[in-house]
Amino acid sequence: MSGITNPDATRIWDEAEVYVIPRNAVTDITELLPATIDDELDARWEFVGLLDGSAGIPVNPEIEITHFDAYGQARYRSKAKKGAIGTAFTALEKNSVTKKFVLPGSTAGKIGAPKGMYYFTCYVLRDEDVATEIWVSTRPALFELGSFSKVEGEPESYEITVHHSNDSSGDVFHVIDQDSAATELAITTTSLPAGVVGTPYSQTLTATGGIGAKTWTKTGTLPAGLTLSTDGVLSGTPTAAGTPSITFRVTDSAAPTANTATKAITVTVTA
Rank of each mutant, 00 (worst) to 15 (best):
E93C: 12
R139D: 09
Y123P: 05
E159M: 04
D171L: 12
Y118L: 09
S180I: 02
P155M: 06
V102Y: 08
F101H: 03
T161H: 07
Y118T: 07
L142S: 10
F143K: 00
H164N: 13
V136R: 02
V162E: 06
S96Q: 15
K115T: 14
F173V: 01
A181H: 02
F143A: 04
G112Q: 04
H174C: 08
N95P: 03
F120H: 14
I176K: 01
V175A: 00
S168K: 10
K214T: 12
T161C: 01
D129M: 14
V196Q: 13
T183K: 13
V151A: 09
E156I: 15
F143Y: 13
W135D: 08
A213K: 11
D127Y: 07
Q203H: 13
S147T: 14
Y158D: 00
D177L: 00
Q203E: 12
A113G: 03
H174E: 13
I187C: 07
F101N: 12
T204N: 01
S180Q: 02
A141F: 03
G195I: 12
T98V: 04
P104A: 04
V172R: 01
K150L: 14
Y158W: 12
L185T: 10
Y158C: 07
T98Y: 10
H164C: 06
R126I: 09
I134F: 03
N166W: 00
A131V: 13
G198P: 08
Y118G: 05
S180G: 05
A213W: 00
V136F: 09
T208P: 01
H164Q: 11
A213C: 03
E159L: 12
V102F: 05
L92Q: 14
I134T: 09
F101S: 07
G146I: 00
A207S: 15
G109M: 08
V175H: 05
G212M: 06
K150E: 14
W135S: 00
F173C: 03
S165K: 12
T190H: 01
G209P: 09
F173S: 05
P140T: 02
N166V: 08
L92N: 11
G116Y: 06
A181Q: 14
A108C: 06
P193H: 09
G116Q: 07
E156F: 01
G198K: 05
D177N: 03
Y119R: 10
G198T: 01
E93S: 09
P140Y: 08
T189N: 11
W135M: 13
S137W: 08
P104Q: 08
N166S: 12
K99V: 11
Y119D: 10
I176N: 08
G195R: 06
L185N: 03
K94T: 04
T204R: 12
D179M: 01
L205G: 08
L192S: 10
S106Q: 11
T132N: 10
K100D: 14
D171K: 13
T188D: 11
F101Q: 11
G146W: 01
V196N: 06
K110A: 13
C122K: 07
C122I: 04
S169H: 11
V197Q: 09
E133W: 05
G112Y: 07
F148G: 14
G210D: 10
T138V: 13
H174P: 02
T98G: 12
P193W: 02
D171G: 14
G212A: 11
G109R: 12
T190D: 10
I187T: 02
T190M: 06
S137K: 07
T132P: 02
K100M: 13
